[in-house]
Design a binder for these strands. Sequence first.
DNA 1: TGTTTTTTGTAACTAGAGTTCAAGAAAGGT
DNA 2: ACCTTTCTTGAACTCTAGTTACAAAAAACA
Lengths: 192, 192
Amino acid sequence: MARTKEFDPDAAVDKAMEVFWANGYAATTPQQLVDALGIGRGSLYNAFTSKRALYERALRRYYERETVRLIQVLDGPGPARERLRAALDLVIAAAVDDRERRGCMVTNAAVELADRDEVVAHLVRRTFERQEAAFRSTIEEGRRGGEISGDRDAAALAAFFLTTINGIRVLAKADPDPRRLSGLAETALSVL
Amino acid sequence: MARTKEFDPDAAVDKAMEVFWANGYAATTPQQLVDALGIGRGSLYNAFTSKRALYERALRRYYERETVRLIQVLDGPGPARERLRAALDLVIAAAVDDRERRGCMVTNAAVELADRDEVVAHLVRRTFERQEAAFRSTIEEGRRGGEISGDRDAAALAAFFLTTINGIRVLAKADPDPRRLSGLAETALSVL
DNA sequence: TGTTTTTTGTAACTAGAGTTCAAGAAAGGT
DNA sequence: ACCTTTCTTGAACTCTAGTTACAAAAAACA
């Protein structure tokens, strides 16, 4: 019938994700992609159509791979308050361990592209919505269990936490100081 | 002695600032700059050396022009608490009124370049530090006046507000909904 | 008015971006 | 074994980025 692909497209998207994540969209060149994926230019374009299309797949992959981790922590077991803390700690740990300071690819996409690319904007919004929803249900649980008092509504608090993690990612780009970032988490949690 | 420039370099930097602000660094082309500044390529490079150098000047100009507004509000008259609210409102109003969703050029620079460009990182840090300092002294004033109770230290709160405004700017890139953003300010202020 | 110095506009240049294409190679069905 | 199809490689192509070179012009001042 037909020749079979010599590379694994799924693995290739993972590698492309790393490149775009580290460099952003505009600053990434086809050459970098070719080098990182270890395939020829022809195969690259045959398999992925265009830089733009590959970026989109990479961003979706990032969502599946990285973004869910936050949600898993929030949806996990344990007291709601501790889960919220764990979620912030996860974001901080990711920023601190990130030697190249690539940050979060969704945050990066939001800032670099969301204002000019409707598809990217949509993807970013979707990601934010899911994270926000996870924050929200955790807060609601904590409220029901009497663990979280306060009177502020859960939706507002969820949006607030989403803002906080994005703010942390921006600050960490300039100054990924663990102590400073931990203090931020502490302060943010005090709204509860 | 020598011929004089036909264009105003200061005004040119302002225009360059607008272009970089709207498009980011990598996505901005010399052609766009030439068009926006209304000068020839020769003059552009004669006066500003390189795209990179012009970007740096544009970013510094942005700091002088836009960033001080926040600080002015915080350093202004009135009760500390109201000044903090006014500062958040300023950020939100800027985001909402920003039809092109260019966001804040410093936030954009932080995300796009701070991880690879030490000079930009330094500029961003400097900007953040000043804003943070303004938040801090406002909080300390409020504390002294008994207006702001709480026990959390002013430095931590200032860093927290800095995080919040950057988070707001990221969210606004994807979804600049005034109501949502106002709720965020409300929630953030409740830490006091 | 001439000299000097800098600007200006335009052309030119190199490098690489982003993509396409032609020719051969593997896979599998008949 | 052959045919078809899809893959691979690598060269090739176009276009523009980013910068430089240069000749003409124009302002300042002697």
